[in-house]
Computed example of a mutant assay.
Amino acid sequence: MTIMASLAQQESESLSANVRLGLQFRYQQGKVQVNHNWFLGYTKDEDGRLIIDQEQAEVVKRIYREYLSGDGFLKIKRSLEADGILNGAGHKKWHETNIKQILTNEKYIGDALLQKTYTVDILEKKREANKGQVPKYYVENSHEGIIPKDIFLKVQEEITRRANLTKGSTERRRVYSGRYALSGMVFCVHCGDIFRRIKWNNRGCKSTVWRCTSRVDKDGPDCPARTVREELLHEVVVKAINEAFREKENILPLLRENIESSLTEDVTYQMAALDEQIKVIQHELLATTDMKNPGDDLGMEVRRLRNEKQALRAEEASNQDLKLRVDEMMTFLDCLSSELNEYDEQYTRTLIDKITVYDDYFVVEFKSGIEIQIDE
């Protein structure tokens, strides 16, 4: 029985290795395999290619739209369930993880990151997350996308922002609330924590104010941050937008020019050269016959080149995203017929990135990169 078990193990390893080689070759060719029965928004045609299911695609678009409008995973989940919309598995019950997976899946922009998981044992069908044990392959434009890439990038940025609301002296994480546009957007200059909206009763005088969370919870060093009336914060936002409106002819073109000068024309060439190097090394890996030691040095070089390419892609995407934000702000200000007279939640969500509260003034940072100081 020991000998038979040993032979079975050898056969399993050989079969697993051959299957891995076949999968890696298909991945290198950019052939995408997706279980469309569990993949909301897509189905397959007669040739097995991914095609958009228009009805389901509208649900995907709705999820992205609601998230960018300020809703959290839980609120989106409840709204879908309230409307009787089925998830990718055809169930009425949604989970917050379903929402996050949809918002972070690159396949919705038409790309595909292949081999996120890998098979440890082909006979037992045991799979584990790929944390560098085997190569990953990123295929661009592998199928028709549902979500524009600029929208997808905005969502990833917003997910990161909400997960890291405070960089203050306290180590406690703050929970994002999408109920108000200013939630998670107002920061304390003293400790770096976020401000929280509070119904205040000061000696019988009821009002709505914003206060530094570390000061309210008392879970960090004593913070001397002042209390800010909500009406004052609204006035600050209106003044900042109006200031940008008045100076749009001077500020935005200059900012756009600076961004365009930072966009290097040879990035595409550099990434193509890296792709060619990666392709050559991966073919060398496929030609390796010793499956117990499939070229560790070659594998490390592939990872290094892939990280270098990812850094180039991230830099280019960041610059392009900032350029897009400037264009969006120019379009918004051009369509604004006159200065604002009152505070608007949607304008705040669209334009403002951060407000820092100082002792006697505010600094408003727009998503386009513009900073405006508002004195009291």
Rank of each mutant, 00 (worst) to 15 (best):
S6D: 13
L7F: 09
S16W: 08
L23G: 01
Q28F: 12
Q28D: 08
V32A: 05
Q33Y: 15
Y42R: 05
T43H: 08
D45Y: 02
D47T: 15
D47W: 10
Q54I: 03
E55S: 12
Q56A: 05
K61I: 00
E66C: 05
G72M: 04
G72C: 06
L74S: 12
K77L: 08
L80K: 01
A82N: 12
D83A: 12
N87V: 02
H91F: 06
H91D: 14
K92D: 13
T97R: 11
N98K: 07
N98Y: 04
I99D: 02
L103D: 00
N105P: 00
E106F: 05
G110K: 03
L113A: 05
T117N: 15
V120T: 07
V120Y: 09
D121G: 07
A129V: 10
K131H: 15
K131I: 13
G132A: 07
G132K: 06
Q133I: 11
K136C: 11
E140V: 11
S142A: 15
S142G: 13
S142K: 01
H143W: 05
H143F: 08
G145N: 02
I146L: 07
I151F: 05
F152A: 04
K154N: 13
Q156G: 07
E171H: 13
V175F: 01
V175A: 11
R179N: 09
S183V: 04
V189Y: 11
H190D: 09
F195D: 02
K199Q: 10
K206A: 14
S207A: 09
C212T: 06
T213E: 15
R215Q: 14
R215L: 14
D217S: 12
K218Y: 00
D219A: 11
D222I: 13
C223T: 02
R229T: 03
L232H: 06
L233T: 04
H234T: 02
H234E: 15
K239F: 06
A240E: 01
N242T: 07
L252M: 07
L252E: 01
L252Y: 07
P253Y: 05
L255W: 08
L255R: 10
T264M: 10
E265D: 13
T268H: 09
L274W: 03
K279Q: 10
V280R: 06
V280I: 11
I281Y: 00
D290P: 05
P294K: 03
P294N: 07
P294C: 07
D297M: 07
D297T: 09
E308R: 12
E308F: 00
K309D: 02
Q310L: 02
R313N: 09
A314P: 01
E315Q: 11
E316F: 03
S318M: 09
Q320G: 03
Q320A: 09
K323W: 12
L333R: 01
S337N: 10
N341T: 12
E342S: 13
E342K: 14
E345H: 05
Y347H: 14
T348H: 06
D353N: 14
I355P: 03
Y358V: 00
D360E: 11
D360P: 00
F362T: 02
F362C: 02
V364N: 07
F366C: 04
G369P: 00
